[in-house]
Design a protein around this nucleic acid. Structure first.
Lengths: 151, 151
DNA sequence: TGTGAAACTAACTGGGG
DNA sequence: CCCCAGTTAGTTTCACA
């Protein structure tokens, strides 16, 4: 992992379908070494896959909500069970077990506020063991989630 | 956007470098219609780009921290300024303006807890206008961030 | 809208600096 | 390590059902 590898990753973050020639051009190398560097990073686990960026809005998912969840109990069993239930809920696209004031942070996508009300009623409030939850609607997103490669 | 389009998107979310033949196989179509459906979704804005999934750990970014930030003032100007400063901090990989108890939720990646202490001292606490911040370390991530296509 | 073949472009392999 | 040239595989276009 040198400076050139990081620049290649930055190019792939911008557009993973760019040709090896385009990437090579951007980092000042021919296609062949770019290809072998990328392969090495795939093998070493730096690159874990290739994905597509989708517009939630265009898919009819206009609202993102961040939910802080506090559980009744912090036993291994309760945490495990809660995680398993979350895995089955499509609206929950992220779930993090965290330290601090609450236990879980969820990221949920829904059509609109009406749909969110349905989500709470049908999905979240039917889960046993939730002591407390607190919702925050995302009003604006200022930064997306690419990893920093300059540090 | 029909059922087949969604299945194509699901395949691309799993692996955006799969060949059109592989995608076609998965959705029961030949390569050509897959290609034209993908092109249409690119043009209509459903697909906004192609990216690479990287391992934060493999890049030496072992800790993720979620920070709730409350600002002193909620004037347009303050919010704007704060957003501009955040944009320049590489450790901040996500920033959401939210409704509710606090104003911003940040997602920050750092090497370790020592590095987080540095981040707080050098980056976050030097920003004017922060009334209060509350950090939660991510202990475990149970679900990643692909959009649901089954709903 | 779909299929299948033809033309084109990019990914991959190996030889040489 | 890198470049270049040749081979293989994938993408894009087109004629037709």
């Amino acid at each position: 992992m040198d400076r050139v590898d990081k620049r290649i990753l930055a190019e792939l973050q911008k557009n993973s379908r760019a040709s090896l020639q385009e990437i090579g051009q951007a980092v000042g190398l021919s296609a062949t070494p770019c290809w072998s560097r990328i392969r090495k990073m795939e093998e070493s686990g730096v690159i874990t896959g290739y994905s597509v960026r989708l517009s939630p809005q265009a898919l009819g998912l206009g609202d993102t909500v961040l939910i802080q969840v506090t559980l009744d109990s912090h036993s291994d069993n309760t945490l495990e069970k809660f995680g398993e239930v979350l895995a089955t809920i499509p609206e929950v696209i992220e779930a993090h077990l965290v330290s601090g004031d609450y236990d879980y942070l969820l990221r949920v996508v829904v059509k609109d506020t009406r749909d969110y009300e349905r989500f709470l009623r049908e999905r979240l409030y039917t889960i046993k063991g939730i002591r407390h939850s607190r919702s925050s609607f995302v009003l604006r997103t200022l930064k997306a989630a690419d990893l920093p490669l300059s540090m």
